[in-house]
Write a protein that binds this DNA or RNA. Structure first.
Lengths: 345, 345
DNA sequence: CAGTGGGTTGCACATTTGTGCAACGCTTGC
DNA sequence: GCAAGCGTTGCACAAATGTGCAACCCACTG
């Protein structure tokens, strides 16, 4: 079956119409939900379409409807456990509401976020979801004025315009401090990275603040990019000094894994006996038997679901203030996940 | 600047033309490389475009050229270390040659691969890259007949038609056996999963074959889906028996990590003193200090690069055999990465 | 001064699809 | 038997863009 000529090109509705002996309109209506077609022509069309391998051209369809069905995901470091899980969750949910994800990887150049936004506009995406990087405000406005949703995830830059989904990093970080403090830790190190991402900074600040309120000073170590290597290096630096810390708050689970490994392998320390550790994100490795890391869970499923509700909502552009149509903001809670790297009280 | 009316819709070339006081053709030519426009009108157009926030509609452009610039990546379990790294590498390389990746997540339903292929056709993608799952042959043919590239990665199903990129799984698995055999191991377990992916099966077979040639029998354990949990479970099962293995070949690094953790945490064993382990993929975690896993490196960079050469090549459809225009096949070598989980001879 | 040539420009048509409108045919009711 | 009504069909136009062709203008040359 499916005898096809080697046309080397996509099949158009015109060709299907000719083979089926109907007008092109009939073909179009056959593939349009709720259109008026008789059962007989519908059958003829479907048969011809199957035989030729016809598939509706969504690009052309998008010219008419203001709906390409494309959603752009802009992010860097997508090979990271946290980002890849987010990507997985979001793409799945998008497909469930009949959207398709276009992924733009902005690792490398710092101005590639701008290029990514341009792609978003070029492909008439319904929405742009920014996972990392800070796009220029003027381009964001262009996107919004073009009718796109612009959704910033975990970037609480105080831009108004785009919709934003965040996690209560500061609150969770404060809680992290109290967990360690209650466990008896007094010389607490904060392990962060040189990335300076808004959410990482918020975690540093929250922890620092809670420590200050308790009368403790903390030192922040930033030994490279956010990852295992920087955590390991930070461990080497901090633990080789004369006054070893008795606990560490790592603003990322990856940093925590690296830090723990340095402590155990390089210094023969035991966690949590000699050293307590708290991480952030709850990546898969945090649950592995070698780490059993106490951490805070990123509400990835909730984030992904909220995105779909933002996109599904039938135009909630009720208020259209002339200057700033401030987008909605949602903040989810990062709950602690107790495992084994913090001593019980 | 950038005073924009709240048009709530994308800007068209027509609007730019009116503002600039030129014809729409002039606008089109301004954004077409190599077209004939005078410097003065070009400037007028660019200025008007900037002011209105105009961006060329690639969807409409694709109607004319047979080139959407879209490449579909079809895959499941994209939150896995191996897959996310592959995704990262491929998306980057695609962007470098001015393509954009559309990611279709096929986790869940088994027939969603078919739906994914349909999306590929709907969006007139230039190419379809299949990372997992086995698409129906008839749809593959439709894609090829439509002029798409179809590239199968690490799925050496013996379909002819699509182009395929594989890794010499069997050869590497044989080498894995000899590494363990040379280290003095004789009771070797193979840890695999219930997935039954072609590459996993090839690794099992290669190892089994080499073992048989050396006069050893191996047992294959499949304790669940390919991942840390199944490796851990396999470890529990295998090591609680009376005759403990003295080595394990895990067909995936994730399985190996789980297996090692079970051995150490549940049975207090030491690697490599009591037990040698060899993995596959060389995921990031394999290099972590807690594992230091000896494994085989997937040539991800080479795979990604080869994809771009396949897409960049200006129509190498030299031979167009009437029936089966067999696509090119490339097989890369997976080189061993020596770390610490195999005893030195 | 007229003719030629080259660079620009605009018109019109092409790409593929959805849809309003009018016409068509068939059935049903009087 | 005829008219009304309803479902179906095709024509023509819409969407945003690229491009061949002819016309245009300007400068240069004989």
């Amino acid at each position: 079956m499916s005898e096809m000529k080697p046309g080397r090109s996509f099949v158009s509705a015109q060709q299907v119409a000719e083979l089926a002996g109907v007008s092109r309109s009939a073909v179009s209506r056959t593939f349009t939900d709720g259109a008026s077609v008789s059962e007989t022509t519908r059958k003829k069309v479907l048969e011809a379409a199957e035989q030729l391998g016809y598939h509706v051209n969504h690009l052309a369809r998008s010219l008419i409807h203001e709906d390409s069905g494309i959603v752009c995901l802009i992010g860097a470091d997508i090979n990271t456990p946290y980002h890849s899980r987010l990507l997985d969750a979001i793409t799945r949910r998008l497909q469930a509401i009949n959207r398709v994800a276009m992924v733009i990887n902005t690792s490398g150049d710092s101005d590639s976020v701008e290029a990514a936004l341009r792609q978003t506009l070029n492909y008439r995406a319904n929405a742009t979801i920014v996972l990392s990087g800070t796009p220029p405000a003027s381009l964001i406005n262009t996107c919004i004025n073009s009718g796109q949703h612009v959704i910033l995830i975990n970037r609480d830059d105080h831009l108004d315009g785009p919709e934003s989904i965040t996690v209560d990093n500061g609150v969770a970080a404060r809680e992290a401090f109290h967990m360690l403090h209650r466990a008896g830790c007094r010389r607490i190190a904060v392990v962060s990275s040189q990335a300076g991402t808004p959410s990482l900074v918020a975690r540093e600040r929250g922890f620092e603040e809670a420590a200050r309120e308790a009368g403790l000073a903390v030192t922040i170590t930033r030994a490279g990019p956010t990852g295992y290597g920087a955590g390991f290096e930070a461990g080497r630096l901090l633990l080789s000094g004369s006054e070893r810390p008795d606990a560490a708050f790592c603003v990322t689970d990856l940093l925590a894994c690296g830090f723990m490994d340095a402590a155990r392998v390089e210094f023969g320390m035991n966690v949590p006996t000699d050293l307590c550790v708290v991480g952030f994100d709850d990546i898969e490795q945090a649950g592995w038997a070698s780490y059993q890391l106490t951490t805070f869970r990123q509400p990835i499923a909730q984030i992904a679901e909220h995105i779909t509700t933002l996109l599904d909502s039938d135009n909630p552009d009720v208020v259209n203030g002339p200057g700033a149509a401030s987008g909605s903001r949602v903040c989810f809670h990062a709950a602690p996940v107790w495992r084994r790297t913090v001593r019980p009280k």
